[in-house]
Design a protein around this nucleic acid. Structure first.
Lengths: 116, 116, 116, 116
DNA sequence: GTGGTCTAGACCACC
DNA sequence: GTGGTCTAGACCACA
């Protein structure tokens, strides 16, 4: 797995897992890969994965079953979708509008880029 | 001035100055406020402002006249516009599309939000 | 049976069994359920139950009769009561006092909560 | 500083800081010691302190000012008091009652221990 | 000076 | 096998 330097590795992994859960590549109640597995798979230190899991757990997206592993919670999809929506409407969309106005991009140009 | 914790202060100030230049609130050839003035105005350490000015100077957006101050260069607007365009088409726009698809936002909804 | 994630499962089960013995729901000399039965009943791995039994046996609360099962010892109730008292006076009570002082809970309020 | 082995060091430090804030030994808006200072003072690795600060920050008890340090937030005391109250009334108090009933501790004995 | 991240390696409790 | 914690040491960006 490749990482952007602008963001911490552990939160990029968290983002990646969140998207997979949202796309139901990991289903509700399903066990996600173990710390060591994921660490080996993406080529980072296990504690980096732990930080990822801690973050997701504190958000309520995954939960731990002692000695077994981490599982996708029932409310995971709602949580992820809600957070993403908030970010989208409060940050991504306004920023998009702001930038396109600042650059004077015409509505026709926007439409073509967005296939609208 | 308030800052987001997610980005460095000096780049937030640089962004703010760039936008003002782009909107011609500072015109070409005009002197921008001194380090100390700006520092007092936005409430940060003068060295942070220095770093901002160095950044803008290295990009060719402002230039220093020894003992007098910093001035907006002739090519400033082009430079800013080009950089903003690059960021917009390589990052803001793709991210916008990706997020809106991930959230399943319909084309109609997008159109209404964007006044298209 | 549901478990708190903050404590190990085997000690939660041990605690539950101890309380039942103390309340004489299991009487002295009585056979307690087998490893497999209990495992099925509370929904955990049999080895976890084994560990619980080992723990209780090492304290002298239950004893094994080879091939037959585990039985409540004669001194079980004393052992449990003594350990609980120690914990109560060395940990639960001091903590209770500390927290109630820290939160500034009045003596009247305490009395009413405790029916004193 | 000495630690109990039953709880993680970083959360014991968090608890200690919370109590100090609650007792206003650190006041609202005040800077708390830096990561390295605290690490040296209590004799642990700086990353352990970082985990402590992350936890407190995620709860909204402290906030970071870039390059300067961590500061006690305005709502810190409310947050701490509310959380402590919740724990007290939902866990400490019920557990206290449960244990004292289980051990058959008389009301008179309780009163004397609690100075009621 | 401040915090933030990552690695490597060790050790532990638990299932 | 699972997660959880801690240390030591390095490196980085930021103010």
């Amino acid at each position: 797995m490749e990482f952007e330097s602008s963001q911490s590795i552990f939160s990029q992994i968290a983002e990646s897992l969140s998207e997979k859960i949202l796309k139901q590549q990991y289903e509700v109640g399903e066990k996600i890969p173990s710390v060591r597995e994921l660490a080996a798979e993406v080529g980072v230190n296990p504690v980096t994965i732990m930080r990822t899991f801690n973050e997701l757990q504190s958000k309520g997206i995954i939960e731990n079953k002692r000695g077994i592993g981490y599982f996708v919670t029932e409310k995971a999809i709602d949580l992820i979708r809600n957070e993403k929506k908030a970010v989208f409407f409060e940050k991504v969309l306004p920023d998009f509008i702001h930038q396109s106005e600042l650059l004077g991009i015409s509505k026709e140009e926007l439409k073509s880029h967005l296939n609208l």
